[in-house]
Amino acid sequence: MHFALPPRKTSQPPPYARASRSSPIRRKQLQVGGLLACAALVLIWLSTYIFSTSSEHIPSGTPEVVIVTVLDEATMSQDYRDRIIENRKYYARKQGYATFFPEVADYEIGTSPRSWAIVPALRHAMTKFPKSTFFFLLSPHSLIMNPSINLKSHVLDAKRLESLMLRDKPVVPPDSVIRTFSHLKGDKVDLILTQDNEGLAQGSFLLRRGEWAKFFLDTWFDPLYRSYNFQKAEGHALEHIVQWHPTILTKLALVPQHLINSYGVDIASRGGKEVMHKEGEFVVRLVGCELDSARYCEKEFDQYYQQWKALQNKGSI
């Protein structure tokens, strides 16, 4: 029908009429809805971000490094043990690190040599200090001679480590076909080891906490290795797994021996004078004293202990 004028709209719209799709009210509603949806999405994203990183969050005050030294009641006198503990604790207090002194008897190592206890001890340390980043295993027959050295700047820092790493070096000297990787980033390293003339040194090394560390320790501690009669027990087992399993080799960095593993005795087969402890170096290790019936660990220890005490009294450390 056509009228001259359009019919007038009623001023009371029918109650069932809905707002037209493009009415201003509708548009406003859509805008608000869209904004709310965006805000919700952002919130969800943020919360997942926060919660996913929270597991890796390290509370302040957590010691960054834990020094692990396994003691043995059966072979060490109380006096000797006290001196060892005193030495470690002094260093840890200076640098804000933690110490952990488990006993060999705490672990079921069966009939295998007692030196195997270092492996479960490290696992134990990771359980006790679940937030600490590095674990420094130091054999009891050794002393920290220079407590002013901070491990972070000494070896652990990624950049520093990259400059120290021995690349493309035979894992077991002198001529193992397995060599350390030549392209390895400092922050991918989980195990920092040294080697002497005979092989890898398991008396002083650093291990980063993580899934890899558990895998490494559990593999190392496999009963088939313990029952295999490796000549040097856990030392040879370590050399074995490093050479046969690339997933372990990829996480390994070798550093120069004097950084964390100077020797306190002159043994020709172990490198002789060249690797002897010099003034200012971090650690002195009386390597092999517990295995050689002609040597006395406590006597050798006492010599360096007095030296350390003298330095301490002088106030130079």
């Binding site: 895998f215 088939l224 295999y228 399993h245 690339p246 997933t247």
Partner: peptide, 20 residues
Amino acid sequence: SIWTDRLLDIWWDPVGYEQK
């Protein structure tokens, strides 16, 4: 997974093989 890489790596080991 990374875990699987590790498992596949150590699944066969000459020391275990020699003994068992």
